[in-house]
């Protein structure tokens, strides 16, 4: 177990290092001269350009640039937002709670509805419900998130007037969370279904049934845990993809989270802020997948033994 954690930690750190290098190098993708693109005046003098280049750290070799970037990073300095005129880290941290709330509620909807649905369907293999779930899965991966969000607003806020379009409080979070979680609800359900079908075919289930245990008890005592482990394994991956969906959903519902900030930063060409955003998202995704994998190995010791 210890060795597994260490090995998994090492790969996560390497992933983060490479991601940070790529994020640092993104600035070289800017077409033309980054300094002249980012300088405020329309026709900067050569001195101004040189000063800007120096301020951006572009006047040194690439590897030195990266080392500088990492040096700043280690002290929590992600640079200064050009237009917000505040440290990037401050801006990002202020928006973090909204994004996390949204992502976690989306995950809760995907797992909370997906798992019971998958378990139900596993008992009714090949039935109408089973086919409907397959269709729901196709719809889930095909529906444009932004359109689903607006359609829900049109139905529940504009027409039925049940839920607020925007504002504070948990009621205003219902539609965004559902929009975000919908695509993954069916995926979770399908994974649960196949895990459950596998488990129900195991010898220990047959033994439990043959000694006269009721089906309810078989389900709760013997089938639930191994099936849940298979689902836990994909939660890390799903969370990563939810974080991608967050960007769209926040912009549909005008939630002041990281995704909305990122789009604003892009439209203002606020490159340090975009870099900070990319790095933070990479860190969140890598950390979550690490934690989920460790939790998974703890639940199922066979994983770390491999």
């Amino acid at each position: 177990m210890g060795r597994f954690i260490v090995r998994r930690l090492m790969t996560s750190l390497v992933t983060l290092l490479i991601s940070s290098f790529l994020v640092c190098m993104l600035i070289h993708l800017i077409p033309g001269d980054a300094a002249s693109v980012m300088s405020q005046s329309s026709s900067p003098s050569p001195e101004q350009l040189a000063a800007m280049r120096h301020a951006l750290g572009l006047d040194v070799p690439v590897l030195t640039q990266y080392l500088h970037y990492m040096e700043h990073l280690s002290s929590g300095n992600l640079g200064r937002s050009i237009f917000g005129d505040q440290p990037v880290a401050t801006l990002l941290i202020a928006r973090l709670p909204t994004t996390f709330t949204l992502a976690l509620s989306g995950l809760a909807i995907a797992v909370g509805f997906g798992m019971p649905l998958g378990m139900l369907v596993a008992y009714k293999k090949g039935s109408f419900v089973d086919n409907a779930l397959m269709m729901l899965a196709v719809i889930g991966v095909s529906i444009p998130t932004f359109w689903l969000g607006l359609m829900l607003v049109l139905l529940f806020s504009v027409t039925l007037n049940w839920l607020p379009v925007a504002g504070e409080g948990w009621r205003s979070m219902i539609l965004p969370a559902f929009t975000l979680g919908f695509a993954y609800l069916a995926i979770v359900a399908r994974v649960t279904r196949s895990a459950m079908i596998d488990v129900l075919g195991e010898d220990f289930i047959r033994t439990a049934r043959s000694k006269g245990m009721s089906e309810t008890l078989v389900f709760y005592r013997h089938a639930l845990r191994p099936a849940a482990i298979s689902v836990a394994a994909i939660i890390g991956v799903i969370f990563g993809y939810l974080m991608g969906g967050v960007v769209v959903v926040e912009n549909v519902f005008s939630l002041n989270g990281l995704g909305r900030l990122a789009i604003q930063a892009i439209s203002y060409r606020d490159y340090p802020l975009i870099q900070g955003f990319m790095l933070l998202f990479a860190a969140i995704i890598v950390t979550t997948s690490f934690l989920v994998d460790v939790a998974f190995a703890w639940l199922d010791p066979r994983i770390s033994a491999r």
């Binding site: 490479i18 993708l29 077409p31 990563g240 991608g244 960007v247 998202f281």
Partner: peptide, 24 residues
Amino acid sequence: RSVDLLYTFPDVLIALGLVAFLGP
């Protein structure tokens, strides 16, 4: 390994980063 690394991140996020710096 690089492909695996990129596979970790949602493709929308990668596309977003590229567009941000290439220009919208």
